[in-house]
Amino acid sequence: MTTIDPTAQTTRPPSLTASRGSSRPRRVAEAIGFVAVWMSAGFLLHLPSNGYLLLGIPLTAAFQLLVRRRPVRELFAAVTARFALTRQGIVIATVLALTPAVYATTAMSSGDWVTAGWYLAAVGGAVAAGFALRAQTLATTLRDAARPIALGAGAMATVYGVLHLATGTPLPAFAALAAVVKYTALYLPATFLMEEVAFRGAIDAHVHHDGEGRGWQSAVLVSALWGLWHLPVSSGFALPVLVAELVVVHIALGVWLSFAWRRTGNLAASALAHAGIDAVRNATMLGL
């Protein structure tokens, strides 16, 4: 039986209902500045993708505490009074931490410390996931994740399915299914400390407040920033084509992730959707 965490509030907190004296143009400028700092560090330090993601953990925490001036727990479940895990939350966190913990051990034994850091961050993210997932019902999480998963995973399966047909490359069904399970188990807890927590939990919550309309424009802006954010660790096309591809794809996916976050102020649905979409992408790329 699914119950709501007793620490949950019945009304939305100030971070989602009021501007606290900060105008929307200023909030937008602060969000753009945050992403610009992160991207600049990625370019200047020539970080690998995992290192680039890890850099976002302290940057997101600093943005939340120093710019937004909101508690860190609101990155995961804004409609809560304090950070606490129920017994069921501890079980969820433990289960979600198992897969990245195993991979972290393997990475450390081989001396790959950046990759090990990514897996350890996912272990930490499992605790935040246990908190968020117990702050609302499972039905709500699945309902809000359903549309972005259907759109994103469906698009990934279609694009890479066509490529498999066009190249005559078979897609091993069992291996693909196993990949979906594996990457969902890794990405779901990871998104609570990397990427999703920054662009929905921090940036979207800062740019868009309740009472400012549904916020299509702000959702598009946040999603465009999310696309551009990938530039320091992306390649393969001429720069104008790469920018256009990143922005268009991430707007198409990100708007729905923003709306999933905004409906409840809980990261669980958008994190699940993000993890599911990336897992299907990785699975359907097998053999290409």
Rank of each mutant, 00 (worst) to 15 (best):
S223H: 10
G152E: 04
E212C: 14
W216R: 09
G201L: 01
V180A: 07
A198M: 05
H230T: 10
L186F: 14
L163Q: 05
G154A: 08
V197G: 00
H164P: 02
E195Y: 00
T140A: 09
G201I: 00
G211M: 03
A178I: 14
S234N: 06
W216V: 13
I203A: 01
G154E: 09
A157H: 10
H250Q: 10
S234C: 13
A173W: 14
H250M: 10
A176E: 05
L177Q: 14
V243Y: 10
A238R: 13
L186N: 06
V159A: 08
A150H: 06
A238V: 15
V247F: 11
E245L: 15
L242I: 15
A153H: 02
A252Q: 07
G161L: 03
V207N: 04
A145L: 03
S218Q: 07
A173G: 15
R200H: 02
L242A: 12
G227C: 06
A157T: 07
A190P: 02
A185H: 07
D204F: 02
P240D: 13
A166G: 09
V180T: 06
L253F: 07
M156L: 04
A146Y: 03
T140H: 05
V181L: 13
H230K: 09
S218P: 01
G161F: 12
L221G: 05
A173Q: 15
T141S: 11
A219G: 08
V249T: 13
A166P: 09
V255Q: 06
M194G: 02
V181R: 12
V243A: 12
V181F: 13
F199C: 01
F237N: 15
A166W: 12
T158A: 14
T141M: 06
L228E: 08
A224K: 12
A173D: 13
L142M: 10
A155G: 14
L151A: 11
H164V: 05
S235T: 15
H164D: 04
V233Q: 09
K182A: 11
H209W: 05
E212S: 10
A219M: 04
L257Y: 00
A260M: 04
L193P: 01
I251F: 10
W261V: 00
A198F: 05
L186C: 11
T158Q: 12
A178G: 13
A252V: 10
K182M: 13
L177N: 15
F199G: 00
S218R: 03
H209Y: 06
G254K: 05
R147D: 04
L171N: 06
E245W: 13
G152C: 09
T169V: 15
V159N: 06
G265C: 02
T191A: 05
Y183K: 05
D210Y: 04
M156H: 03
M156P: 01
V197R: 00
G152S: 10
F237Q: 14
P240Y: 13
A252L: 09
